[in-house]
Simulated scan of single mutants.
Amino acid sequence: MLTHTRPSIPAPTRGPDPLAELRAARAFLLRLADRGRPALDQLILDVGALAAAEQLTGGDIPEELRGHVTPARVQAAVAGAAGDGEAAARCGARLLIPEDAQWPAAAALTGTVGLWVRGHAGLEILCAPSITLTGSTAASGYGAHVAADFGGELAAAGRTVISGAGFGVAAAVHRGVLAAHGAAVAVLGCGVDRAYPAAHENLLERIAQSGLVVSALPPGTTPGRHRMHGCARVLAGLGEATVVVEAAARCAAMRVAAAARDLGLPVMGVPGPVTSAASVGAHQLIRQGATLVTSGSDVLAALSERERLAADTAEAWGLTPQEL
């Protein structure tokens, strides 16, 4: 059922694609992944992506998925995946999947079905040491200033800087990275072929010129509140640590911090004025154990200390740090 889509799903590299069949299967599965995610992840883990796609398109929908995946949704996903290649080609995007050599090695991305990517940077920047910076869309002047400083400093230190694409902190982070001529990665909560918010179309194009724009959602997907959890998971999973620059008590940045903690990744927070509602969330995270940082160098020092402690612990137990 997916045969006609196989040649049209763009691979990360040019030339014949030995993973064409698998790439088409994952493009289809991505169209089902925004709902019933844990059950779909488990099915893919149990039988593999290709077998999972064949099972679902053959009408054999596991009971634990039936509340989210209906035969009609499967047919819609097949039809949607058939057009994804053309939509991706129009914006220069390609589908990166876990079986690709360029897939980030981060264990936190386990379960991610695939990533649509566009931009002129080499995909190796997704595998390089990276930091996720997040914060409020309603950033104060202080928050925007600090976000740009952190982004520029980390980029100048050779780190890939990951952030969202919204107003406030994310926009300031990317502008700081671009000013430092660093590698910026913008994670979208919509299709990679869309500019959201629309006011950031030029900013996203600038990011794509020297970095990457990434989405775990199929081309053409519109933003939606129910998709925010998946976006937060990708944001957190791409970085080796998440830094919350400025956040109110309830904002999307707190979801990213929660995702990082769920994935076992370090969370750091930037303190702000105690009179500012925009810093309540960051202060809350610090009280809960997030590392307090005031500069990009603090972030790098905290990661170095974490790595040293892991190495010491591993040596004491006769293990490698990766085995801890």
Rank of each mutant, 00 (worst) to 15 (best):
V234C: 00
G92E: 08
V214R: 03
G230N: 03
R66P: 00
L45F: 11
I61C: 07
S210Y: 01
L203Q: 03
C127R: 15
V177R: 04
G48C: 07
W116A: 08
V245S: 01
D84C: 05
L109H: 09
T70F: 02
A11I: 08
V267P: 01
A77M: 11
G111V: 12
P266C: 06
G189N: 07
A156L: 06
P98W: 07
R37T: 14
G36L: 10
V117Q: 04
I162H: 01
V213D: 10
E99A: 15
Q322G: 01
A138Y: 01
L45R: 15
R37M: 03
R255P: 00
R227A: 09
A302W: 11
G48S: 12
L45Y: 09
V146H: 02
R26E: 00
L56H: 11
S297C: 04
I162G: 02
T160M: 03
R14I: 02
G135I: 12
G182T: 12
L43Q: 12
A72N: 10
G182A: 12
R118V: 09
V256L: 01
L292V: 14
A165P: 01
C91F: 02
V187S: 04
D17S: 09
V69M: 05
H226R: 13
R31Q: 12
Q209T: 13
G48T: 10
V244M: 01
Q102M: 08
D149R: 15
I286Q: 01
G176Q: 06
V173T: 11
G168C: 10
A165C: 14
A302P: 08
A241V: 13
R306Q: 15
E305V: 08
G230D: 06
T320C: 01
A259K: 06
T70V: 05
G36C: 11
P219T: 09
L29N: 02
S304N: 12
T291G: 00
L45M: 10
V234S: 00
I44A: 04
G296C: 10
M268G: 02
